[in-house]
């Protein structure tokens, strides 16, 4: 297949046809990749909702060099040969993204001190890296009636940013649709149909895909902060899923089990609820060793034992931290 040449923030890469701008940027590296709150590589039709990945296409393609009139969602726009894209180099994009982050935060409760997601929350990272330092919103934040969606997952609707990822998981990973979005506009909320409990073998993955603390692990609720735990790669023979997981341990005790997430915060392989919720004894697992975590992550603040390789060579550091 022919490769298409695309230039993002002055860095050129060749990618096969059908690649989106976001995926091409991720291939180049973290310093040009736009943030994404709703796009998830493994979920079909995800993306396009959150608008944090907006980029400016300054040259459409080699054949038609006109720039695109508006900023485009990079997760949904495929590259063309000779396309030139501006992400962090365009003040317009940075300003628009700042606006999007502000919009996402105006109705977010900012209850990070009591939120289980704190420390591994994509919205925290997003607002820290791309947002403004103060809020201009002076009204009551919206609230919702509490809904119990089962004994495995805790729903905090106020924290939801309506990324639709969990809806796609429910749609694509589990038989039968039990989870969707009801209402519209700024009163839209995720909910299970007539409040049925979400109980099927892969529903736990909704917790992993949730970028914020709207869906959290009920069995891990208020047990610990994620940065006090040490993640270890582990696996077990599972007849339902790959069995490849991360154990979050404090001492010898396993506090929770999650899927393995790559550097973009997306899980490599879905895991089943048996692995996630029922296997919490150390004897259930074969440990592979400590998991590598970006040393700038809040999770790595309590240093690992010797033998763990830190990712700290100057080439791999994000540029803004170097300067």
């Amino acid at each position: 297949m022919d490769l298409l040449k695309v230039t993002i923030d002055n860095q050129t890469i060749e990618v096969p046809a059908g690649t989106t701008i976001l995926q091409a940027a991720r291939l180049i590296g973290k310093e040009v990749a736009p943030p994404a709150m709703c796009f998830y590589t493994k979920l079909k039709t995800s993306g396009g909702y959150c608008r944090t990945c907006l980029v400016k296409v300054s040259k459409g393609s080699e054949k038609d060099p006109r720039p695109m009139p508006k900023l485009v969602a990079s997760c949904r726009t495929t590259v063309m040969d000779g396309m030139e894209v501006q992400n962090y180099t365009s003040p317009e994009v940075v300003e628009a993204r700042k606006g999007v982050v502000e919009f996402l935060l105006i109705n977010h409760p900012l209850d990070c001190p009591i939120c289980d997601q704190a420390g591994e929350c994509h919205l925290q990272d997003l607002s820290y890296e791309n947002g403004r330092s103060h809020s201009r919103y002076e009204f009551d934040r919206r609230t919702f009636d509490k809904i119990d969606i089962g004994d495995k997952i805790q729903l905090h609707m106020t924290r939801c940013i309506l990324c639709y990822r969990c809806v796609k998981v429910a749609d694509q990973l589990t038989p039968g649709r039990v989870h969707g979005v009801i209402n519209r506009g700024d009163v839209a909320e995720i909910s299970t149909y007539i409040q049925n409990a979400v109980d099927n073998e892969f529903s736990g993955n909704m917790v992993d895909v949730c970028p914020v603390g709207a869906l959290t692990d009920k069995t891990f609720r208020f047990k610990s902060r994620v940065w006090f735990l040490k993640p270890f790669d582990a696996h077990r023979d599972c007849d339902k899923c790959s069995g490849k997981t991360v154990l979050w341990k404090y001492g010898k005790e396993i506090y929770r089990v999650t899927g393995r997430k790559d550097q973009w915060g997306e899980v490599d392989e879905w895991i089943c609820n048996t692995c996630r919720y029922e296997k919490k004894a150390p004897s259930d697992w074969i440990e592979e060793g400590p998991r590598q975590i970006d040393r700038h992550s809040v999770i790595s603040q309590n240093m690992y034992e010797a033998g763990t390789k830190f990712v700290d060579s100057p080439e791999t550091l994000p540029k803004k931290q170097l300067s």
């Binding site: 909702y49 608008r51 606006g99 999007v100 919103y137 309506l162 639709y164 979005v181 700024d186």
Partner: peptide
């Protein structure tokens, strides 16, 4: 417009309500 917003994408979902307030 606040009432009409479908709520899919964040700028419109949050922004129309904010402007109305």
């Amino acid at each position: 417009y606040h009432h009409e917003s479908c709520g899919q994408c964040s700028p419109c979902r949050e922004g129309t309500g904010w402007m109305e307030k």
